[in-house]
């Protein structure tokens, strides 16, 4: 129960970040970028879109799907959350690799989203394994 509430909180945080980045992407502006100053480089790079779809939008859809899977607490929904979060984490890891090694620019918003995804993957996995058997 606690891990479900925690997962919802983290997913909402990730959703907020992804929403902000999606809005910035479509408005054509530049994200406010503190600490590390690579947001525009990242957002304007060829990696900002994935097969024509902005990665920010993909993230947004991912978080929405995860939130959707958290609405009910059954074996199936717990499995779906884990699947989505692990795939999300893989995608985030790939994007972080691209930021560091290909673009050599770090977007603090993207790092924030990657941390949210990592937390979600950990929460979803333990939640699935620890749920009472039936």
């Amino acid at each position: 129960m606690i891990s479900r509430v925690a997962a919802i909180v983290v997913a909402v945080a990730g959703l907020a970040i992804a929403t902000y980045l999606t809005i910035v992407h479509y408005a054509g502006g530049e994200p406010v970028c503190a600490i590390a100053h690579g947001c525009a480089t990242v957002q304007k790079s060829s990696y900002a879109e994935f097969a024509g779809v902005p990665v920010a939008l993909l993230g947004l859809l991912g978080y929405v799907a995860i939130l959707g899977s958290l609405l009910k607490d059954t074996e199936t929904t717990r499995s779906i959350t884990a699947l989505l979060a692990l795939c999300g984490l893989a995608f985030s890891a790939w994007l972080t690799y691209v930021e560091i090694w290909e673009l050599e620019a770090i977007c603090i918003w993207c790092v924030g989203s990657a941390i949210c995804m990592a937390l979600l993957a950990a929460l979803a996995t333990t939640r699935l394994l620890r749920a009472p058997a039936h």
Binding site: S79, A82, L83, L86, T125, L128
Partner: peptide, 10 residues
Amino acid sequence: ILGAALAAAI
């Protein structure tokens, strides 16, 4: 299930 999820992630 987790194994399948990991495969999907890869």
